[in-house]
Structure formats: C-alpha cells, structure tokens
Nucleic acid binder design. Sequence first.
DNA 1: TGCTTTCCGTAACGTACGTTACGATAACGA
DNA 2: TCGTTATCGTAACGTACGTTACGGAAAGCA
Lengths: 205, 205
Amino acid sequence: MGRHREFDVEKALDAALCVFWRKGYEGASYADLTEATGVERPALYSAFGNKEALFRQALARYYERYLDFIPEALQLPTAREVAAHILYSAADLHTRYSKHTGCLGINGVLAGSDEAEPVRQALIDARAVGEVQLRERFERAKAEGDLPETAKPTALAAFVMAVSHGMAVQAKAGFSRDMLEAVAEQALSTWPTGSSELSGKPSGP
Amino acid sequence: MGRHREFDVEKALDAALCVFWRKGYEGASYADLTEATGVERPALYSAFGNKEALFRQALARYYERYLDFIPEALQLPTAREVAAHILYSAADLHTRYSKHTGCLGINGVLAGSDEAEPVRQALIDARAVGEVQLRERFERAKAEGDLPETAKPTALAAFVMAVSHGMAVQAKAGFSRDMLEAVAEQALSTWPTGSSELSGKPSGP
DNA sequence: TGCTTTCCGTAACGTACGTTACGATAACGA
DNA sequence: TCGTTATCGTAACGTACGTTACGGAAAGCA
C-alpha cells in the first residue's frame, strides 16, 4: 500500500554512477546528483541512504557492469592472455566515454570539485613535463644506439610514467617498499635492449 | 620598516607540503594547515596568497626537493638506467615516510578529507580483491606450466594492477586510447612464458 | 468514501569551508 | 620619542555542503 515511486531506481543509480565517475566521491555534490538523476534529494536518501551508501552502490554496479572484463579475463587459458585482456580492456574502458574518462575506482578519489580543476590541471601539466623530458631522453638513447631502432620513445616514456603513477596509487593504499620494487623490477624486465645490458637496481639508499 | 615576520616562511611551506602530501589539495583544510605550520590563517594568506597559490608553491618545492631524482636519472648513460633509477627512486620515495605515503603529485588529487576515509578504504579493498584474484590466477598458471617456475605471481599481479592504475591516471589526464594501448603493449612485451606464446591484442571492440 | 501508508518537493537546519576586516602589537627611520 | 609601516591574532563573513522536518499528494485497503 502507499504511494508508488515515480522514478526508476536503476536509472537513477546509473546516472549517479556517471557523476561519481566524472567528479569523484567528494567532488560530486547533491546538486550534481539531483540534476543528473532528476530526483530530489530526499528521494535519493529514501532510495539509497546517505551519500556514502549511494556511492558504494554505484561502485558495486560499476564492477558488475563495466569491470566485467576482469572475471572474463580470469577464465582465459594463459596468463599472458589474462594480462593482455585486462590491460587492453582497461585502455578501452578508460577512453570509451568522453564524459567520464579513466576509472571510477581511481577517479572516485582522484577527481574533486569543480573549483579544484585548475589545481588538477596544474598537476597534469607537471606530470606532462616530466614525461616529455623522459621521451626526449629516450629519443637521444635511440639516436645513440642505446635503444634499438624498433623502440618507441613516446610509448616507453608513457609506460615508465604509468608504472610510477600506478605505484603511487599502490603506495597510498599501503603497499610495502618491497612490493613496489617488485613492480619496478617486473616493469624493467620488459625493457628493450639493443646490445648488451644487465639488470638490477641502481645505487640507492 | 614595519614589523618583522615572526615565523620561518620556508619551514611553514615545508609543513604545508606535508599536509598536502597526506591529505591532498581539497582534503587539506586551513585548520590542518594552521596547526601544522603553527601560523594563523591571515599570516598564511599574507605570505603565500590563497590556498591554490600555497599549494602551487608546495608543489614546486616538492619537485625540487623530492623529485630531484628525475633530472638525476636523465643524466645516466643508458635509457635502461634512466628508467631503473626513476622507478626504484619512486618506490623508495613513496614508502619513505609513513606519515605521507605515495606521491604528492598523485595524492594531491587522490587524497581527500578525513570524512571520506571510509570510502577511500572501500576503493582500496575493492582493488585488492581484484589483485588477489589475479594473483591466484597466475599461481594456477605457474602450476600448469603456463608461467615459468621463476615467475612471481604476486609481483606479476601487482605489476598488471599498477599499469592499470597508471593508465587510469593518464586517461583522466586526457591520454588517447592509442597511447594507453601502447603502454599496455609495452607492459606485455616480455611477458614471462614457459613454452610457446604469441603476442597481440585479444578480441575487442 | 474514508483511512492509512508511502512518496514527493520545498525549505530549512547545522556545520565546515576559504577568505578577509579590524584593532592591537612590534620594529624601523627621523 | 614619535610616526609610519608591516605583521599579528581574533573574530567574523558569505557560501556551499550533507542531511532532514514537514506539509501536500497519490495509491491501495476497508
């Protein structure tokens, strides 16, 4: 008995998911959420609970609707195919929608309010500077024969930066130094070599 | 003429840097900043400008004081040494201080206010679940001979996740799909293999 | 047709934020 | 010693946020 709900809960959750995907958890305000869902605040509270509960439901939906390639990948016959499927599917997902690029799981805490956009851009610019320096250094290495002719300096620079950023995310999640070094080691094992080369850590503390 | 400043601007900036490192840009409030620096709000405004200007100065200081291993690396003789120095130095920096793990440049937008801590933890947990699944899959692959005996499933899983997270950060910064695929390709370029294997993308859109 | 139950939307609540007036205080030059 | 100038701390400002009372409206049951 009682009055019926006038909005579609599933559609509202999908709309909220997109808002969180683009703006992150803290960056998404109820003004954003009500606008995107077309549902007034008290109705959102009634249907989903508070903001945190709404985000958690959006996150669960994200995993089952967008990260379905992970269980998919895990069933592939070889480990290499598993890794390849995950990495290429992620590349696709992160760039598929121009309105919300990247990953909800990362953006959820990586994005923020609109007022902080200039700061985010400044950080993006700063990272870009480092990446350009790295690429130019690898171009020189290629010219010097230190890297093979087939090496792609742009991709190598982006790769090193990606691993660095990934390690930063993991460090923030509490990963140990040993674990990060294992990641670095694995990343370096993919390093193209033209002639002789030896592996191992550089001088370090 | 006029009264002298009673606090050390450099020390205050260092203290602010640590706050931003731990809490991110938006997550750091003036209450946090005044407590860490021991300087009242109006004095911070007088010395550094507004919050954004303060953050930018902290970021510049971060690059010159903590990311000095990048220009250092760029001068090493081989490209591999460049990459190795950057990756191992990053692993060290990201875990050196227990009070502020990770990278200011990433945390600056990845961290947030204290109230959002449960949400960040939920995202960490969710990522950890995926990583465990991946590791278990790689352990199976090792048992099946699909991965060599020397392969380390834990490191491989962490590596694949690190690359995924790094690509997510790059996607949020506007990287193209082609670029992300180049990163993925590089990550896969020397996947450890027990027997025969071929490279290339999986089926995809 | 009434009664009950549920939902809708307006409007408000309390709180925290970034920012700034303003008067008191201290250091210099004349 | 006085006047000027810059910094100090208190206290307040306006705004935006997440959250919720509350009265009106619709749907089922008697």
